[in-house]
Nucleic acid binder design. Structure first.
Length: 504
RNA sequence: GCCGCGUUGGUCAAGGGGUUAAGACGCCUCCCUUUCACGGAGGAAUCACGGGUUCGAAUCCCGUACGUGGUACCA
């Protein structure tokens, strides 16, 4: 089985969850069947192509591991892959359709179209379509005489080419996810195939491209389902029916209220894009999963199982496991609401699961944002092992590991004060002396000294542990106190206790 | 409005004629821990509604409701 799948990101900037998931499913399907993964950029409408959008998409896909770092951005055996470079061939096919009577020239100006919509608008029909009924009243090659059409064309009159939808046909196809889907053709409008500027619309382009690139399987979002009959008919009219790809329309990813949008991110405080994206026009920043502190493996994992599962109880998958187990037939047909809490859980699990070497690199990056430079890798490893269970997002390492490298910036004095007294103060002053005397600095020794002194002073060791913790880490968090003391070392421990004593 | 797609706890979901209707996230209780977590043991919570078909329906059929998408010279 040779499988080629296509990816058509919207080049309008940003790459949201649904977009990444579409690529991911394409990728998993192709890899699962040993096929080729074709990445195609569809830029039919260049005016909408904001600066940097294309590069951004590649960056995101690289971060996710869906395209290799050094990959040529596009190209391959069926290029050119950029629609704007394929302009000539679209016109040719559109003309063929006209010749065969499956499409026609339409000379209506935007004003005329608007007028038509205004005039036909009713309560029941708020958006009238340019369909088999309306086209008889418009200025097109079906209503004008051949001579008139010829004349208009010779004068280079602005025109489009529209598909001529049949009046009474049932078009149906089998969707890999949904099964049999059918449409009544008279209810579909005469979509524009070739725009006045000579560029194809998506409808023409997707068919011509899929054909010329020998695409065998096409996945796209569910929002395309209503225009599927147009595509089906085009495959048929162009005489390519036998090589039409198999279709799969993926379910939508929904936000807390309706389709997941950029706005939802800002509104509910979670990322919707793979990586930070700043709209060059508005300068508006949309936060990304990467910058929020997600691991690519976790991101891929959570996306993969949002709408798909293998029927077992397994939830944590590596990319290889996903490839091995992926089955397009098990993709849900219903849209799935995105749950940020669960997304964070996936990240937490992956932080615990990730190999130490990879995790070290990520943690170093995080620590460097607080000017912490890690000099001793072995030390960092010990720290990570100690704190990774309590980090959900990468930046959490700042709080949970930072104090191993740097004295706490502030002390949670309020947590200690209510129960603080002279006896306790005295205890710690004495304890400092004991610490100085310790020769082999290790957990059990420090702890024994601490407990012995507490017994001697007649204070419960438990009551002294919280102040000790605050002194070392600054707050009520972190691993066992003596473990921390052992790791940060004798000098540092003493210094922190001495320093903190001044504040209590 | 019309057309398409969908509907199992708050969320992701397994199950597709007979089940005590899995599991996960989140929530609650308890244990562990004199910090915060991790971990462990429990708990609350679901088949949208109405009709059929059937000995029997979450499961099949038909309606209704609701959700969502489309209805552009945007993708």
């Amino acid at each position: 089985m040779s499988v080629r799948v296509r990816f058509a990101p919207s080049p309008t900037g940003g790459l949201h969850l649904g977009g990444v998931r579409t690529v991911l499913y394409n990728y998993l399907f192709a890899k699962h069947h040993g096929g080729e993964f074709v990445l195609r950029i569809e830029d039919t409408d260049q005016s909408r192509f904001v600066a940097g959008a294309e590069e951004y998409i590649f960056e995101c896909l690289k971060w996710c591991g869906l395209i290799p770092d050094e990959s040529p951005q596009h190209g391959g055996p069926y290029g050119p892959y950029r629609q704007s470079e394929r302009k000539e061939m679209y016109r040719k096919y559109a003309e063929i359709l006209v010749t065969h009577g499956h499409a026609y020239y339409a000379f209506d100006t935007p004003e005329e179209l608007e007028k038509m919509r205004e005039e036909n608008k009713t309560e029941e029909n708020p958006s009238p379509q340019y369909d088999h009924r309306i086209r008889k009243k418009m200025r097109n090659s079906l209503t004008l005489t051949d001579a008139e059409v010829k004349d208009l064309l010779e004068k280079n009159t602005r025109h489009v080419i529209r598909i001529k939808m049949p009046e009474n046909e049932l078009v149906s196809f089998t969707d890999m996810i949904r099964g049999e889907v059918s449409f009544q053709t008279e209810l579909v409008d005469d979509k524009v195939l070739l725009k006045a500027d000579g560029m194809p619309t998506y409808h023409l382009a997707v068919v011509v491209d899929d054909y010329s690139m020998k695409i065998t399987h096409a996945f796209r979002g569910e929002e395309w389902l209503p225009s599927a009959p147009v595509h089906l008919l085009l495959w048929k009219y162009l005489g390519w029916e036998s090589s039409m790809p198999k279709w799969a329309h993926l379910p939508l990813i929904l936000g807390p209220s309706g389709k997941l949008s950029k706005r939802d991110g800002a509104k509910y405080g979670f990322p919707v894009f793979a990586m930070n994206w700043t709209d060059p026009k508005t300068n508006e920043l949309t936060e990304g999963f990467k910058e929020k502190g997600f691991l690519p493996k976790a991101f891929i994992n959570l996306l993969a199982v949002l709408g798909w599962n293998d029927g077992t109880e397994k939830e944590l998958y590596s990319m290889d496991e996903l490839i091995a187990g992926f089955d397009i037939k098990r993709v849900h047909s219903a849209g799935a609401k995105f749950d940020y809490e669960k997304a964070k859980w996936f990240n937490h699990e992956w932080i615990k699961k990730l190999d130490i070497e990879s995790l070290k690199l990520k943690v170093k990056e995080v620590l460097s944002t607080d000017q912490i430079e890690v000099k001793d890798d072995a030390f960092l490893e010990k720290v990570i092992e100690l704190v990774k269970d309590r980090c959900t997002l990468l930046p959490d390492f700042l709080q949970h590991a930072g104090f191993f490298f740097k004295e706490p910036a502030s002390l949670d004095v309020d947590a200690v004060k209510p129960k603080w007294n002279e006896e306790k103060k005295l205890f710690f002053e004495n304890f400092i002396t004991k610490l100085h005397a310790i020769e082999n600095w290790e957990l059990s020794v420090i702890e024994t000294e601490f407990k012995n002194l507490a017994t001697e002073k007649n204070i419960k060791p438990g009551e002294l542990q919280l102040p000790m913790r605050i002194m070392l880490v600054g707050g009520k968090f972190g691993p066992a106190v003596f473990q921390i003391a052992e790791l940060i070392g004798k000098e540092e421990t003493i210094s922190r206790v001495e320093n903190a004593l001044k504040h209590f």
